[in-house]
Design a protein around this nucleic acid. Structure first.
Lengths: 252, 252
DNA sequence: TTTGGGGGCTTGGTCAGACCATTGATTGGG
DNA sequence: CCCAATCAATGGTCTGACCAAGCCCCCAAA
């Protein structure tokens, strides 16, 4: 007994956590798969012997994580259906925590550079014609000078998302997309704060085309390098000059 | 009207979502910061004009995302306190979705290789003496041959987590740690399925020491390369041979 | 004056029961 | 045979109550 005993506080298990654990157990063991329907809330109440409020709070958590899609009414698509929508949940999550943790914007840039560099390399190695077509479509849309900055920003996001998805790695694609989406508002603010929007747009277009060409040519090294340079360069040259002292922390 | 109009379904806003939006708004605008206390549930009920169930469901979501820490009772630490615990929420999230999406294990390996390679490079560039000390401690613990496989696995995780944190990028560190934690169970199963545990442990120890030396020496290139090789090599040589046909999908 | 204990208040946790809104299926009439 | 009214199932919401955990404060005893 010479060591001071670290009395771990016994975790106060709340009812909804037990419910959540039961459902997650079914998911982790594979008994519940995407597309399966959970028993109706009232039935879970009977099965588990808890109140409906407890069941609903557990379901709410799963829904927030993008693992559940609730639908009222009757019929085959009704009820609580197991889903797999990681991007949505992850985006929400990152947005919140970037505001909370005040991630320095440089950290986000570093994360994007890392993830998207890897995604681009994967994409160059194995992009399908369909993915390349999606990327081309976004490029063409961004070539339209009449595009608003919002629309340009969205196309930009979709272009990067298409690259991430072309890599064929859903986990990395979801993380990439979520991080990009989480800074959407901030980037939009930057776009609006630019003195010479057209010059910036032209630069981005040119860099995007270069990245696309490298991916389409299957040149992993070049695609990765260009993507990383694209992200770092854009932020270094533009974002900081606009945000400077006002918002060096996380974007809202 | 030649184009088929895409009638976006109007989003059925549920009450708890409105409550959630209000609270998130306060967080995103910076009005609510880490450590601040939310009004008590009953007070939010009055302020927002909704039922307590709706308030509670919204709070539950925030809690699941690691942004809230509920505490009963009175006093300075009581009530719903804004927190920032991304790793916990992210780990839960990834665990769930790896089971749901059946991320091929190779995808997880790719993500780890990408994230940890970058983390190691950052760590080599700017690890503090404290971080290096933590890493050394974990290395020494893993040198203990009497360690159980569970304990070894945890030390292994903590070693990698220390590298990630030494890089000074919280976002990347949290993602790295979460991905590593999400496969904890799977790796443990692999450890237990090995024929020659001691040989494997010896190999891991040696690779860990090499990585540490590179980080401590400030050799970013080498640290990154060794880390990536460590992760890819381990999984290529060992994980697949154990999991093979039984669990080529996501780990539970 | 100090110390110890106990009551009470605040706060989150849980429950029961009711009603509403949406949506697909059923059924009956034209 | 088809269409419309009706019904039933399901998630969404609300009310009101009680429980349990903790802190605060006051009072009695030393």
């Amino acid at each position: 007994m010479s060591e001071p005993i670290a009395w771990e506080p016994v975790p106060r298990s709340r009812t909804f956590e037990l419910v959540l654990a039961r459902i997650e157990e079914q998911i982790l063991t594979g008994n519940l798969r995407v597309g399966d329907r959970l028993p109706p809330e009232r039935e879970l109440v009977e099965l588990l012997g808890v109140s409906r409020a407890a069941v609903r709070e557990a379901l709410r958590v799963l829904e927030a994580q993008g693992a559940l899609r609730p639908r009222v009414g009757t019929g085959p698509a009704s009820g609580s259906v197991i889903a797999a929508m990681p991007s949505a949940g992850l985006t929400q999550f990152l947005r919140l925590h970037m505001a909370l943790a005040h991630f320095p914007f440089a950290d986000v840039v570093e994360a994007r550079a890392t993830l998207e560099r890897a995604s681009a390399r994967l994409a160059a190695a194995q992009a399908s014609p369909e993915h390349l077509s999606t990327m081309r479509d976004r490029l063409e849309r961004m070539d339209d000078a009449a595009l608003s900055r919002e629309e340009f920003n969205d196309c930009d996001t979709e272009f990067h998302a298409a690259i991430a998805e072309a890599g064929g790695n859903r986990l990395m694609a979801d993380m990439t997309i979520a991080v990009r989406n989480a800074v959407r508002h901030t980037l939009l603010k930057v776009f609006h704060g630019l003195d010479d929007w057209e010059a910036t747009a032209a630069r981005l277009r040119s860099e995007h085309h270069a990245i696309y060409n490298a991916v389409a040519a299957g040149d992993s090294e070049r695609a990765g390098d260009l993507t990383e340079a694209h992200i770092r360069g854009f932020h270094h040259d533009l974002v900081y000059s606009v945000l400077d002292e006002s918002e060096s922390g996380a974007g809202a």
